[in-house]
Design a binder for these strands. Structure first.
Lengths: 338, 338
DNA sequence: TATAAAATTGACAGCGCTGTCATTGCCGTA
DNA sequence: TACGGCAATGACAGCGCTGTCAATTTTATA
């Protein structure tokens, strides 16, 4: 830990600069020298001093993730993915929880950027739709990647998932199980995902030539309570659906609770599925069939893009939208129609 | 952004060193000079370059938080508290999610410490009980603060909450509501908090001269499902309790769902309370009466301690344990016995 | 074998700041 | 008036690394 690049250079019998090249995986070093340096470094237990590196190269080896209290599980997973990518590149992740509502967010960001000179920023929703923040970043000329933004971002790369397709697949799954009478509980109208998911549901139903019964469609606000209420309305109809697709897991859990309260068994009498694969989905009983969002992957991708490794994706010379794969998680809250 | 300390020095007509002193709030600068420098800095929109500062002072202005997937909400709140403290001191927070199970955690930490030379580390549970990690930190002589560790840590300062007292208070609250027949669902036996909470429950019951009915005590594993099952057993007794205290919110939610399934109304027929004030507590219906852990405060405290500001607490010359205040959150899942 | 071209390597000057220590100017005291 | 003492300030040398560019060696080409 105390050894410097000079020590390594001396030990390997080369110049500091050569050691530097090896440590940074630069080309133009012969295999033999490279090995010599590497083993010298290993023997001395040498770790480059980031501060010095930064000062000399005016890169910071730091990227920041800004977020504004979305759901904890979401943030944690983005962090997890992003730090994984960071490690591969010798970078580190600085987190900056902001509270758009309180305080002077912009000032906080200013100092963050001013002090740290981060090399890039990951913007978690809903911050990625904050015009002020985005334009500050743009003005400062700091690369940033919005995760699942609801609007386009000029020519900035973005990372997201395909809500429409996921909802379509979930609906098709229910249909495949034999369900034809399917209810749907929409999500918060202000979240762009809500509309997309409903659209996916409609597309699948139309494609299967199934009618959407308006009595079985309810609005919700992504909360457990809304699920309870929506289910109360839907299940009090004389004709009930055999399956209900909720726009997120919290509402699906509410639906299950409500159905149980009405004496219905899940999944025997009613299949219920959610969306998100939140921690709740796996802890509720019966456990929820749901869509796993590729949150971790999105974090990983965002960091990778920032760190310059073009993702091994399609290949339009200029790919801007990186849409990652979700997964349908089948658990005990759904089953084929008896 | 481009201006350096030299620019400021020139503009203020003083030496770099004096500017440095002002920027660091060092003494030995006359008021007049200080003002002159400050305004020069302001006019030039000068921000000190952290990397240079670090290199010259061999401090990093960074603290790290290590965690190993405890619940997301918990982590996020610690982060929130810690970053708040960091901002006050011009520090920043680097996060490092570890997976004790996979990979070589120790190596990850090594490189983290080696590269960044962080000035301190916050250890979230359950990592704070990982002997290897702790001794690595100690060996490297890096200050660290464990949050809610289950064991003592020699002469290291720790930050925690008082589980026993909290559980006692919750029980007393139920008793005050007129409940005398109270059930309890214990938590995961491997979490030290479980035993402490049960202890608090017992103390309160004994103090009130109430008998603990063993038929109403169940073991759980902190999951929703366990709550469902425990409630199933407790509520199938011929004599039922009028209130159940669950060791965490997930189980409490399970209890409510189970009770509803059995045709009991909450809170009319059964009061239920949890512990943690997790997001779930506020989204379930009826919303849970629970104990709010001072997680944010713990994060804040931990960072403050690391950054050297002795907390304005009791005052034993050498305080080691900082026990922060919880709060009993009263919601709709409990009510006085009819 | 000679020579251009390419691949390796190293010398050196900072990056922007702070620690150390020397210098200056001013005060009170004898 | 002279001198010790202290507050305020500055000069200077790095912190440990990388960028630039020049020097050297190797390889390819004619």
């Amino acid at each position: 830990m105390k050894s410097t690049i000079t020590d390594v250079a001396r030990r390997a019998g080369v110049s500091m600069k050569t050691v530097s090249r090896v440590m940074n995986n630069e080309p133009s070093v012969s295999k033999a020298t490279r090995e010599k340096v590497k083993s010298a470094a290993r023997e001395l237990d040498y770790t480059p001093n980031l501060a010095a590196r930064r000062l000399a190269s005016s890169k910071s080896y730091l990227i920041a993730m800004l977020y504004d209290i979305p759901s904890p599980g979401y943030v944690i997973n983005i962090q997890k993915g992003a730090t994984t990518a960071c490690r591969e590149f010798g970078y580190h992740l600085v987190v900056e929880p902001l509270e758009t509502m309180e305080s002077n967010v912009m000032a906080d960001i200013e100092t963050l950027l001013g002090h740290l000179r981060v090399d890039g920023v990951i913007l978690a929703p809903p911050l990625c739709d904050n015009g002020e923040v985005v334009s500050l970043l743009a003005r400062r000329n700091i690369p940033y990647i919005p995760i699942a933004p609801s609007t386009q971002h000029g020519d900035v790369q973005i990372v997201k998932m395909d809500d429409v397709r996921a909802a379509r697949e979930m609906t098709e799954y229910l249909i495949r199980l034999g369900h034809t009478d399917i209810g749907f509980v929409k999500g918060h109208p202000r979240h762009s995902a809500s509309a997309l998911r409903f659209q996916g549901f409609r597309e699948a139903m139309r494609k299967a030539n199934l009618r959407i019964n308006p009595d079985w469609i309810e609005e919700g606000l992504f909360t457990y309570k809304c699920g309870v209420e929506a289910a109360g309305k839907i299940l009090s109809q004389s004709k009930k659906p055999s399956a209900i697709f909720a726009c997120n897991d919290d509402m699906a859990a509410g639906i299950i609770a409500s159905a149980m309260g009405l004496g219905l068994k899940v999944p025997e009498d009613l299949s219920v599925c959610g969306f998100d694969d939140s921690p709740l989905a796996d802890s509720v009983w019966p456990r929820l069939t749901t869509i796993r969002q590729p949150v971790r992957e999105m974090g990983y991708m965002a960091a990778s893009l920032l760190l310059g490794r073009q993702a091994p994706q399609k290949n339009k010379a200029e790919q801007l939208v990186f849409s990652l794969d979700h997964a349908l998680i089948e658990r005990e809250s759904t089953r084929s129609k008896s």
